[in-house]
Each structure stands twice: as structure tokens, then as C-alpha cells.
Design a protein around this nucleic acid. Sequence first.
DNA 1: AAATTACTCAACCGCTTGTAT
DNA 2: GATACAAGCGGTTGAGTAATT
Length: 326
Amino acid sequence: MGKGRAPCCDKTKVKRGPWSYDEDLKLISFINKYGHENWRSLPQQAGLMRCGKSCRLRWINYLRPDVKRGNFSVEEEETIIKLHQSIGSKWSKIASKLPGRTDNEIKNVWHTHLKKKMSSRTNLNADDETGTKGSLNREKTFQESSPNASMSFAGSKISSKEDGAQIGEMFEYIEGHSEVTRTSEEIDKPELLEIPFGVDPDHIWSFINGYDSFGGSKISSKEDGAQIGDMFEYLEGHSEVKRTLKEVDKPELLEIPFGVDPDIWHFINGYDSFQQPENSLAPRDHQDSQEDEVDKWFKYLETELGLEENDSQQQQQNDTNKESSD
DNA sequence: AAATTACTCAACCGCTTGTAT
DNA sequence: GATACAAGCGGTTGAGTAATT
């Protein structure tokens, strides 16, 4: 045998690049029937012109039934950050602590969001220490420290100015009737009003007008969100808002754009509803039979891969052909 | 509307590790 | 213990897309 490592496959004879629906289906149905005891021989047995490594990667990172898709929750992100701090870039180890997440996905999230988030946190702390309080990077800090909220916000297609107008007007009203000063003027996003993220509702209240009687626990649930909703409704109905903004220079700030959807409370609460897309492979009811699970999974895959539509199109085509031949 | 820039993420590459012989 | 092979792992790339100019 020659020097060096033998290549895993003949690269001139294997297909590379993105996987087609057909290839995905072949791989899925093969593994579903026979499993994946030997990745090297699998492509040939499954009728795929792919390298075994490529098949393994495709299965593990994308086609596996227990792969969790969709945005990472704040909890998941925090877990990644903590684990990365303690064990470094051991992505598979980190992935083992996050059920349904792949090392590849975690690695991507780290490089695209969390790394920046960490550096901005560091910058923020450094700024705080020097007394500048990081005001220049507020908008950036929010986007990076709450990518989930940010993504969900974008994903929810908040575009209706009519919907947001009420809240926008409310904020304008608050500003016009109180001593609230927009620190966002410090940055180049004057349309943003800053609200501390994760503070007590009464702190938020203080933030806006110092209203004292709005007590309560930490914002951690939709109920809390609703409570805050009531608070804003109250605000709209009152004409004497004369309190001072106190909490502006808190380290964690959530910036709420004007024109935001009234569903702002989900925004504040981390958008639970968006973390688990309707068609995602959410943790399943243990009472479901395995067979049902497989069926569901295939249905899901068909939908995801657009095969359902293709099937119906094909059926339609068949019907048309049948009609014309008749 | 077009061009440019930034971002995301699936996929690839090559090295390391584990296991069978 | 040495060797060969398969799987696992982490770094990197590049195509596609979104955002910005």
C-alpha cells in the first residue's frame, strides 16, 4: 500500500454538492429499512452516487427523525455558551447536552451568533467599567444577545403599520407626557424605545412612568406578558404620565421598534410560539406508537421536501393524462 | 432596479479516534 | 503491537439569500 491515507471513495465517481429530494428519499427509505451499519457500503446498496461520509453527514445533520429544527431558544444558547466556556469547541460534546441539535448546527450558531454575542458582552462590560455604558452598541447588543427574539420578530412578518400604530402612538404619548428621555437618541436609531429585558414588571413600569402599584414577579411567562399588556392598556387610558425613566442604563436592554405587532408580549417573553414551528419535529407524545411516529415523520419529510405537493401535482398530471387518453 | 455586501448553513476536507484483524 | 479501515469530529468553504447602498 502506498503512503498516506487511502481516499474514502473515488471522488470522480461520486456526486457532490446539495442533495436532491430523490437522493434524500433514497437514503431515508434505505436507512428506514436496513439501518446504517456500514456507511461506506451504504451508498452503493441504496443506489446513491454519494460518498459514505456524505450520506452519514446528510443523515445526521438533516434527515434523522429526531433532528430538532428551528431557532435556538435562549436556554439552548446559554447552554452552548456555558459549555463552550468550560470545554471549548467540542461541538459533539455540546450537542450531546442539547437533544435534537447537531454538532454542525451548534457550530454554525456559535460562529454566526454566539461568538459575536460574547464579544459584544465583553465590550459592553468594558464600556460599563469605563463609564460609557455601552450606549453606542445598544441596538447591536439587542440583536446579538437576543437572536431568537430578533429572528422571530423578522419571521413573524410584522409589517402592519396599522397594527403597530397603537403601540407607536402610545409610546409617543408617553414621551410627550412624561420625563422619559429616549436614550436611543444616543444611537442612530431614534425610532427605538428601550425597555430593560428580564426586569421585574414594576421596573418596566418605572421605566415608563414609575407607576408603583404594578407589582409582580419576574417576566417569565405569557401571563406576565398579559399583565404588562394590561399595563400598557392602562397607559393608553390615562393622561397623566409624569414619571422619570430610571432604568435606562441597565446592562440588558430590549429595544422595541415602533410599529411592532401588538404581539409584543411574546417578543418580550422570548417568543415561545416561534421557537417551535408548527411543522417542526417537536418532542413527541410517548404514547404514540412507533409506527405512527414513522408515518408522521414521513409526512413531515414529504411536506418539508415538497414531495406532497409534487405527489399531488403528479396525481393531477396522471389524471390529466388519463383524461386525454380516454 | 441593479449592484454590492453581509449573513446563513449545508456540505466538504482532512485529521483523530476507535475497533477489528 | 502493527496495520487497515470506518466512523467521528472540528475547521473551513461556498452557494444561496437577505439586507443595504
